[in-house]
Design a protein around this nucleic acid. Sequence first.
DNA 1: CGAGTGCTTGATGGCAATCAAACACCGTGG
DNA 2: CCACGGTGTTTGATTGCCATCAAGCACTCG
Lengths: 243, 243
Amino acid sequence: MSDIPMQRLTEFAEPNANDLALFRSLFGPEERISRRRDIRTQGDPVQEIFLLSSGWAVSCFDSRGGERQILKLHTPGDVLGAPSLAMETAAETLVAMTEVTIRAMPLSAIGRIFKEAPSLAASLFISAQQERIFLMERLASLGRMPAIKRLAALLLHVHDRLVHIGRERGVVEWPLTQADLADILGLTNVHVNRIMRSLDQQGFIKRKGSTVILSDLVALRRLSGVPQRKWIHGPDWLAQIAL
Amino acid sequence: MSDIPMQRLTEFAEPNANDLALFRSLFGPEERISRRRDIRTQGDPVQEIFLLSSGWAVSCFDSRGGERQILKLHTPGDVLGAPSLAMETAAETLVAMTEVTIRAMPLSAIGRIFKEAPSLAASLFISAQQERIFLMERLASLGRMPAIKRLAALLLHVHDRLVHIGRERGVVEWPLTQADLADILGLTNVHVNRIMRSLDQQGFIKRKGSTVILSDLVALRRLSGVPQRKWIHGPDWLAQIAL
DNA sequence: CGAGTGCTTGATGGCAATCAAACACCGTGG
DNA sequence: CCACGGTGTTTGATTGCCATCAAGCACTCG
């Protein structure tokens, strides 16, 4: 049984040992789900949220036409399915983009956290606000940016999240197809291909098989137009809860 | 001193009298801010969140070029500025689009809510998840939808929120210019104009001065591609917190 | 009355979609 | 061993939605 990734929880504050132990105890056993399988489908009853232990997944809306609009790309350590806590049946479909392992946390556990571990609850709350900022960045990206900037912004976002969970800086092992990328960026696979080659030829990135090397992080960040953000850590109002 | 709008808080559960009283007591006095004025500017230190008592406002990112990408349109009862709780300095600029009245809640008050009123805290948490779904809807809209569907989806979203706070069904008093709308939809004012006239001519809406009448809500909703959502109210896991 | 703001309409151009087809890679099976 | 289908990448030709540029119109206000 592998460890439970806690980066999401420790990003904004250092939880005490009791809270950490409680949090760990609330997750179910590790489940393995294979590529392209739904973890949870839009319309399913909301009975739990998920922690992505390994692999990549996405959240998407299914439209009547059968197409899927990808809303968020999830990497290890992410919490999946939380937005649907506001609904009776799931608003989004969660799909494994690689083979993934997940752990489920039942709704009753969330209630316990708010009741028994207010500091933990506040961390989850802040994490939800951070997710809103990520969505806002994607929105600004899709709203006004040309394709090449959208791609740059997405590559950087994923890169930064992977660095945050301890992966090597400047290198991203990229398991998605160009068609997947297109769904995320609101483009076509054909155009993603052209843009990706363009980024490559201009020296922003290099590709070797499924590995993407971000050769010039500074230039790429300037191109993307997205600032590097400084998240809070241990703010007074959160520390005060524990007293 | 006018009343504090509580729709955001009572949408997902009925708070008890104590919690309600606590919540009310944590807001500062009513402040009036005139049209086109910043309520808080990107980069400002995050010292509070705001409750929009009356008027319309937006959240936006300022980009280096000086342009602003609008991320969220806020109507009375909305909480403003919460995403920046994850940051030391505000990620988004809050702008009054009409004359507005707001009340501020300091960060320390949020700490008190998590410590002393876990049910309230959970309601705020669910509200944040709901906001994520709203953002996801906008993202799906900008990603793949043609302009006319984007406009339909936005009109309906705002309409539904206004109905939720007790406004008349089918009629929206619309204080934004077409250029504002364009910023929200990721279009130009010119194109918004054409699309709006097209919606009018096709019988989806009628315009009288600054009033928009949604003459055929069903057809408009079908056009928009966005389902009407059923939000939770009083889920077990939330009720359990109060016990 | 002139300036400012917002709405409307027309002409032109560009970014990305669409359509179409090759090419590379890989596991399978004849 | 190579033929084969399946998946993913690459390239070219054409089309279309929406941006851009430009200008006229309506209304308000000092």
